[in-house]
Design a binder for these strands. Structure first.
Lengths: 225, 225
DNA sequence: TAATAAATTAGACAATCGGGTAATGGATTA
DNA sequence: TAATCCATTACCCGATTGTCTAATTTATTA
């Protein structure tokens, strides 16, 4: 049963302090299911390594010299790998927390985190979990938009009275979000323009929006695509 | 190690389905460090029990009959215990997620979560961690305010060699993202339609996109708005 | 002062969009 | 079997879009 071994979670560490870097690597490599494949001491080098290794998880220090961690995360997201990012700092500035989480990070850890707990976070994050350190959890939650609606749950129905899209409509929606015209969508899906238009039309109605721009924005914001 | 036993994490479950309730209790009580001290099948009863037991963690179903879970959480927070709340549902409506997290929940789990993982979440949350299920993590992070307001970035930032937009163009872009037509944008900014069109045109060129949909999507994804 | 950039307006034109209405075949369900 | 839902196609029509050229004013910069 040599083949029952599961592929380990690959990790890249981007951190300028040598000592911290060593500490992180040791803490993580102590776990057989986690594999630190590369390390960088600045963002530029880090981005190169990320491009080469396409790791599952990136441990990103925020206080890097030169390009800071947040800029690096933004560039990282633009590369469209689905690497998950854990933001790592020693301080807890509110703006920095929010900025990193809204710029691509899936987790926020303070550096005094317990090493074994960090490994847990790496595992969690690799599956898509959002994990936020207790020290900054409350401030993050407070930054979420308040919803003044006692009627948030007036029966189920839908996400704003949203009728679920059919499979085909989802396909169309994806192309729509890419900015394709009805003609282009029709060509991609090998149907007539009329069909594409029909789908778009019913997408707009089901999503309760007036035009394709609103549909695209809503789809992106709600992570439908 | 009878004397090394640590005080277990106390938990109250508020869930209307008997079967789910039993399942939750079993899954959690299987852990010696977790103690389900009480259960309720509706919010009113739940609040009474919470007041009596002041548990470390509350497992709150959102789809309760009568007073719903979100209302219950708000009332719960008003009681000023520092119980942590885990919101629990079987669906993943965007508004429900945001609403519960901004109303007091520290975690959001979908009901198909692995039982042993749930125990981990209970432990995490009891220490103050914010934990969000992978299925809804992205949409939650997207709901966080974008960074342009935060002075974390040393000028400009993202966008690969993108020509910077002028102030006016940014205004237009904001309206564009809301799905407004050129006519509507013109009306809002008190200019002629020609002007609005001119701005849109130069926005498209500067952002290197072909149409307003792509512009809107790019703006949202890169947090320009 | 001269040059440059931004904001504004205008007219025109082909292409596209969104909303109607309506019909057909296939699949699933009551 | 009848009733629905979905995907598909078609036509019409008014509104909107994106691009073009071209002009004026203001503010900033060289």
């Amino acid at each position: 049963m040599t083949e029952t071994k599961i592929k380990p979670i690959t990790v890249i560490i981007v951190e300028d302090f040598k000592l911290t870097r060593v500490g992180l690597r040791c803490a993580l490599n102590a776990n057989p299911d986690i594999d630190v494949v590369a390390e960088a001491e600045d963002a530029v080098e880090g981005l190169k390594l990320i491009e080469r290794y396409k790791p599952d998880v990136i441990l990103m220090d925020l206080g890097l010299p030169g390009m800071n961690g947040i800029e690096a995360m933004i560039k990282c997201k633009e590369m469209h790998f689905d690497s998950k990012i854990i933001a790592l700092t020693s301080h807890d500035r509110s703006e920095e927390v929010i900025a990193s989480l809204s710029s691509g990070a899936s987790a926020y850890c303070l550096k005094d985190i317990d090493p074994s707990k960090l490994a847990d976070v790496v595992r969690d994050v690799s599956t898509g979990v959002c994990w936020i350190d207790p020290m900054v959890a409350q401030m993050t939650l407070n930054a979420l938009p308040k919803i003044e609606s006692v009627g948030v749950l007036p029966e189920k129905s839908s996400s704003d009275g949203m009728v679920p899209l059919t499979e085909r409509e989802f396909e169309v929606l994806k192309h729509l979000v890419m900015g394709k015209s009805n003609t282009e969508i029709a060509k991609e899906l090998i149907v007539s323009v009329h069909t594409a238009k029909a789908h778009v039309c019913s997408i707009l109605q089901k999503m309760c929006v007036n035009d394709r721009v609103q549909a695209a924005v809503k789809a992106v914001k709600e992570g439908m695509v």
